[in-house]
Design a protein around this nucleic acid. Structure first.
Lengths: 208, 208
DNA sequence: GTCTATATTGGGATAGAC
DNA sequence: GTCTATCCCAATATAGAC
């Protein structure tokens, strides 16, 4: 029951936001009444907190798997980018929850979203700069590359309801997702390719 | 007074969302009580509707100015991109309001956000594809290019509170904004550059 | 674990005085 | 135009029966 409640709450908080979701909505979604729900969680805040912590821990687990992948240069960058995109696509509710938190600065209810993400971000920056120094990537602002990657992939999923209208198609359908993935990979492939003439660090082909 | 209320409402709806903002908050922000506010606007929905329509009309005006700019190829693309970014930066509250609407699909309160944006989007797609056919841009999925540009620029501004924490700096400070602009321009400059060897359509330098 | 009943708060909206 | 007073309703939360 606890897990059912957590799942329903995740879905509704993601779709309607914290203030737009009542405990009645969540309780009704799992077929119980509000007081029964409050038997499992002491308050709405506490429920939201658990939803968010569960999301963070599941994501961190997958991210750590992804960055543990071997390789260097473009091979590794594209693998991590693909894993990140798959992570988003597999959890659209999480993506929208995350987007809502980012909009509010990520310090809701004492959850330090920035504190959790910053170490990963800094490690990625260090790695990128190391690859640039080794000549495998062109010299380019690593922080902005990562922010662009984050925005391009997360934004596509979080705003899918809106993008559906723009492209007059289901943005989260398999074919559309594949197109998106290869587009973003192609973009960064070009952005990171060393200037032509540099022999040591030419990038391999796109792969997928 | 009406304008004061609209400004305050824009700011609070952008920061806290529709459900997270009470008429008390807005009224207090302009120094009156709730019933006085309801003398100017018949309901909360109506107030939000006016906020949103005002935003749309101001944006459309500036966008139409921007796309009226002359030139072709990279010269025009970069000019429009820069104008779009400036538009976002000048109106961070609008950006966050827009992002919230996109999250919910853009069909709140009968406002057809998709219907307003689609013609502009389609026109931009047509133009890009024409430039590709003319050899001034590389052949690349025009829709995805535009979605990436939208996400890269809008996401940077809408998630500024979060990005502040990541880069440990003010993401909306002039220097950071200049860095962001040149990064994104550089990215698209490379993405759109025709394959080397094509003589007719080489891109000019970055400009700014 | 789930429920009914209830306390309490806060928000949207209206009536009517000034 | 602004206010006080009031109505109505929805929401969080608690008490206590089963």
């Amino acid at each position: 029951m606890r897990d059912q409640i957590l799942d329903e709450a995740t879905e509704l908080f993601a779709r309607q936001g914290y203030d737009g979701t009542s405990l009645n909505d969540i309780a009704a979604g799992v077929g119980i009444k509000r007081p029964s729900l409050l038997h499992h969680f002491p308050s709405k805040d506490a429920l939201y907190g658990e939803v968010f912590e569960k999301m963070l821990s599941e994501w961190l687990e997958r991210v750590e798997d992804a960055i543990a992948s071997p390789g260097s240069g473009w091979e590794r960058f594209s693998a991590v980018l693909t894993s990140g995109f798959d992570l988003f696509v597999d959890n659209p509710a999480y993506v929208r929850l995350m987007r809502r938190e980012a909009l509010e600065g990520g310090d809701r209810l004492g959850i330090d979203l920035v504190g959790v993400v910053t170490p990963l971000f800094d490690a990625a920056v260090d790695w990128l700069e190391g690859e640039m120094a080794a000549g495998r990537f062109r010299a380019i602002d690593a922080r902005h590359v990562l922010i662009t990657a984050y925005a391009s992939l997360l934004g596509y999923v979080s705003d899918a309801p809106f993008i559906n209208g723009l492209i007059n198609d289901d943005a989260l359908a398999p074919a559309a997702l594949a197109a998106r993935r290869s587009h973003v990979l192609d973009l960064f492939h070009r952005a990171l390719a060393p200037e032509s003439g540099t022999s040591a660090g030419s990038l391999t082909s796109l792969g997928s």
